[in-house]
């Protein structure tokens, strides 16, 4: 296992999270190493999005510890914005800033957070737009773009911060079927470049092709964890077997 020597990017230990009396996460632990691609799957309500969102503390946890890029998210000494600028996140609903052009969406945080010059951030933004194939949309407003285009812009917006890890929270779930491919292609290209990625998705083809490790969650707990070959051909846990038989 080559990955064993790599630096740990995310160390989640015994995470517990309640929504009122509902236990959304039940002592979940997860390790993500540099360069690793983790795909988290499971039925809806299994806690996979909650787990992902706790990695940049968009979701507060009730117990356990979360260390990201060497920084403890719940230590009073940690500046949360410092952690978050290294952790890119792509949302199901894109969440582009509708009052700003595509280009401004990509430069805003570079200027405000990274304190880059306007020229530098513009250059970065333009090269990323070219990478996701949307150079011609630079001056358009997000409302004029298709869902697939918006999601590609959202990915570029996160990449503009030069993150050390990218989190994808069901990035294709809000898309029309014919647009899913273009977004997955961008994500695959990113994976090939060696980006550390954690992806919550229902796209089993993507998981099989890209994942180093598949994490299966059910009822707020990780019930199975392993390589895609192992998971898709010979899952051990009955819940995982049932899930696969329903979905494939």
């Amino acid at each position: 296992m080559l990955t064993a020597e790599r630096r740990v990017m995310v160390q989640a230990s015994d995470i517990v999270k309640f929504y009122g009396r509902f236990k959304a996460l039940d002592r979940v632990s997860l390790t993500i190493r540099e360069g690793e691609k983790i795909v988290i799957i499971g039925p809806s309500g299994s806690g996979k999005s909650t787990l992902l969102r706790s990695i940049n503390r968009l979701e507060e946890i009730d117990a356990g510890s979360m260390v990201v890029n060497g920084m403890d998210l719940y230590s009073p000494k940690t500046d949360l914005t410092r952690v978050r600028e290294e952790v890119g996140m792509v949302f199901q609903s894109f969440n582009l800033f509708p009052h700003k052009t595509v280009l401004e969406n990509l430069t805003l945080a570079q200027i405000v957070v990274r304190k880059r010059s306007k020229e530098e951030s513009l250059e970065k933004a333009r090269s990323l737009l070219a990478k996701v194939g949307l150079s011609d949309k630079a001056s358009a407003y997000p409302g004029k773009l298709s869902g697939g285009q918006q999601q590609r812009v959202a990915i570029a917006r996160s990449l503009a911060m030069d993150p050390k890890i990218m989190l994808f929270d069901e990035p294709t779930s809000a898309l029309d079927p014919e647009m899913i491919g273009e977004v997955l292609d961008v994500m695959k290209a990113l994976a090939e470049e060696g980006m550390t990625m954690a992806v919550v998705t229902h796209e089993m083809g993507f998981a099989r092709e890209v994942a180093d490790k598949v994490v299966f969650m059910d009822n707020g707990a990780v019930v199975e964890e392993g390589t895609p070959e192992h998971f898709f051909t010979n899952p051990g846990h009955p819940r995982a077997k049932q899930f696969l038989s329903q979905i494939l």
Partner: peptide, 27 residues
């Protein structure tokens, strides 16, 4: 303003104040 706007701004490393100023208030 949809909650996702604040979340997107925070996930990019903005402080709550920066997010308010650049993302939420203009909308």
């Amino acid at each position: 303003i949809p909650k996702g706007q604040m979340e997107a701004a925070l996930s990019l490393g903005m402080t709550r104040g920066q997010a308010m100023l650049h993302v939420i208030l203009p909308q």
